[in-house]
Amino acid sequence: MEQVLLKGSEAIAEGAVLAGCRFFFGYPITPQNEIPEYFARRLPQVNGTFLQAESEIAAINMVYGAGGTGARVMTSSSSPGMSLKQEGISYLSCAEVPCVIVSIMRGGPGLGAIQGAQPDYFQAVKGGGHGDYKNIVLAPSTVQEAADLTYQAFDLADKYRNPVIILGDGILAQMMEPIVLPNEKQDFPEKNWALNLDKNRPRNVISSSYPIVEELEKVIIRLNQKAEIMKGEVRWDTLQVEDADYIIVAYGTSARIAKAVVRQAREIGIKLGLLRPITLWPFPYDAIYSLVPQVKAFFALEMSTGQMIEDVKIAIGRERPVYHIGRYGGVIPRVNETLEKITAVAKG
């Protein structure tokens, strides 16, 4: 297989193009600018449309319009921009418009800093917008996975008529790795609900407006039932968990650091394993819980003051201690400082 050297951002964009995405609407914000820049070059080559919107708010609503026609469509942004997109994401979720939204996290809150961080887990996973809704959240940890998960995200979005979020960070977006690209997708699902160009169908409406509360309740129940089915998409990866006394849970860039921590811990006799959620929603609760009998303690490594750790705690209850390890605002957790904290617990 032919390998190509790509940045994480470029892999996301090319993965989207190969998945049939022909429409991109976005607004510049660091550290994800390479995504719109790649689309601006690439989409005209495949008869697609790149449009730089006047704001993230406009961009996400252009996604609402374009996605409602049945086209494969994407937007991307970073933390402050993702805050602005939340209104649109709520509408997209309720109106069941499939689309892919890429969130490349940086240091926050506020304007924060442009370096990669992971403080927007809650925003992506717990629903940053208003109302009851759930979106599938995929967290790539390598450039290869950035391409693959984005590629698959479009199929998941269409399958469930639901937005899918790719949650990465500035480090993943900027790093280069050799990858193998997926094949260009040829077959696409029919969308009889969409405002497509089929003149023989009844008219369709894309809407999140249900003024009669009993009708809205029915919609919410149906969306919730759909969310239960979407939970079947849960994915995770493990490293040396079979004999592990301690488990570190980490996603995305943190999981890369955690791999090195596992290796070094084993060198000094601590049986550490890694569980890496690939889907953050649905979260691999059962996979983590299944490790409880063999494990003395869990660690949640994340570049935030502790957001994913809440889901780890939901997974295991109070049966084992869970320790947070992290650095904030764009500071990268070091392998040695992470290992020191684990060693302190392991050696009592």
Partner: peptide
């Protein structure tokens, strides 16, 4: 209206219309 309709968020109708028009 008995035509295809898309119901936009407050103020965002021109952006939604843009998305539709760029595809169709």
């Amino acid at each position: 209206f008995d035509i295809d309709m898309s119901a936009a968020a407050h103020g965002r109708a021109p952006a939604v219309a843009t998305g539709i028009k760029r595809v169709q």
